[in-house]
Nucleic acid binder design. Structure first.
Lengths: 297, 297
DNA sequence: CCATGTCTCTGACTGTAGTCAGAGAATCTC
DNA sequence: GAGATTCTCTGACTACAGTCAGAGACATGG
């Protein structure tokens, strides 16, 4: 552990101690609503719109029996209605009733009040400073815990990520961007064993993606690399690229190529910083204006 | 609630959610040591040197029965030795045995490793940025939760705070500062009903102090105002002054006076910002070079 | 339509956290 | 030195959190 890391660790631990002590109350204030913490957390998640029992279980990391019991309790109190998912009869969907919505609003209001009481003694300048420090810390901590997972390029997460990517290209390219049917056509090429597709998860949300396809026997091509706008500047793009590069190596290629459009200046800068060098046009992609290559490490 | 406050509250709540989810593990990793969280916290506090049972109870906010039971458990495991306090036979003192120290080191090491794993994916620059954001947020949150309490001016907290104050004056005044026996002589004047003494607590530590004494029938004097060096620039001084001013009003005075030395430029600036105006020398304090006054609001 | 798998639910548990009343020993106050 | 107070301890509780095994309803792929 080098010095920066050691001192960051010390700061993080110190902060954790003082924060949990002070703001733990913020969670326990849920208890102030006469509701145990577990129930309050569950009710809160349901109110946020995460309604399928499966999703709730994954988000909160709860045992299915435990969760089921809490839902029965909510039903008994008339706060939640649980019905079968019309798409899949095994699945069940929980939704707040009117009374449940009121209970949720109450929780939300209490949390707001408590948080407001905590920051109340600060001056306006200090509050602004606090908000910006917390936002920075939040982004970095969230970025630090992003995970990179291989998914099916035709699966819902991949589709959603690439759609966001195409929409962004359409907005930024001078003459717009028409993906045509690439979304479905290209999927097979981004599957093992000659390709792959990776999404970056932060709290089960997809915040970045990228694919690898075969270019020729010894060359892999990186495509569809995209980072969610909220997540730029936190190193997620760089780490996505690193993840993809290691997949290229794993798939047995010894050279990487990629293309991009001239307006994507941040991407170009990142490729250059990552050791990519310009190379000749290697495809007839009408949207490509820059071509790069890099040997596999 | 104005706009700054509302957005700070939203940021704080958002941060709280993502932080506890992510770093909650940091505490639960204590559990990784095969020890329940409550026990781990207690063992950790004992290891930090907070050894009297009373102090542990106050710091951790535990029921005395609950704490007692945990200490018995630690004794049974040979981690802690509990003995009577030689100064007061009612009080008991807990100390780590050699085995307890090893268990503590183990907890500490695990926490370090976990925190290190969390920040590991960040670049050095990002780690520095994270550490500084957390340190800022920590100071502000700690400052926001400071409480101002009336204490006896001859009590241990008041003595400690004023001693630190005098030591600082001695270091900063050109010809040093000799408190003489003011510490004991002045105490009665800083007691109700004509005076008072206030200390600012953050986590049971004294971070600022100040006293009010009778100047004449309608005038209260603010004295011994001091802020711990680590806590300057976070608004604690300003809030100590405000607290003292409200005590002056409560005690029935309608004017405030105070004096200070020319080298205490931050203090002078603060008094001016707070609406104090220069006035004529009103005492023969050999260390005073500036005199201020302000009407009670 | 059968085997296999997925999702949810119930019942029977365990461990942890925390509360409350009251007893006993030491100390403080007058 | 008597009475009040402080501090710790024990015993008897309660509520909350979480685990595990297994049953039942539904879905899916051959």
């Amino acid at each position: 552990m080098d010095d920066t890391a050691a001192s960051t660790v010390a700061t993080l631990r110190r902060f954790n101690r003082s924060f949990t002590q002070r703001i733990g109350v913020l969670d326990e204030s849920f208890l102030g609503a006469g509701r145990p913490l577990g129930q309050a957390r569950l009710l809160y998640e349901i109110g946020l719109g995460h309604t399928s029992v499966l999703e709730l279980r994954q988000r909160l990391g709860l045992d299915s029996g435990y969760l089921s019991r809490m839902l029965r309790e909510f039903e008994r109190e008339g706060l939640v209605a649980v019905t079968a998912d019309p798409d899949d009869g095994r699945r069940r969907v929980a939704e707040l009733t009117a009374a449940g919505r009121r209970a949720w609003d109450d929780l939300d209001r209490r949390s707001d009040e408590l948080a407001a009481r905590i920051v109340a003694p600060l001056t306006e300048r200090q509050r602004t400073e606090l908000a910006s420090a917390l936002a920075t810390a939040d982004l970095l901590l969230r970025a630090a815990t992003v995970s990179f997972d291989v998914v099916d390029p035709a699966g819902p997460e991949a589709i959603a990520a690439m759609t966001a990517y195409f929409d962004e290209l359409d907005g930024r390219f001078v003459d717009g961007f028409d993906p045509g049917d690439t979304l479905t056509v290209d999927a097979p090429s981004m599957r093992e064993p000659t390709g792959t597709f990776v999404v970056a998860h932060a709290d089960d949300e997809v915040v970045a993606c990228g694919g690898v396809v075969r270019h020729d026997a010894t060359t892999g091509e990186i495509k569809r690399m995209w980072v969610h706008p909220d997540w730029r500047g936190a190193g997620v793009g760089r780490r996505t690229l690193t993840a993809l590069e290691s997949h290229v190596a794993r798939l047995g290629y010894d050279r990487i190529v990629l293309d991009t459009n001239a307006v994507l200046t941040e991407a170009i800068a990142m490729y250059e910083r990552a050791g990519y060098t310009p190379t000749a046009r290697y495809n007839d992609n009408p949207y490509a204006q820059r071509w790069f290559t890099k040997p596999v490490a």
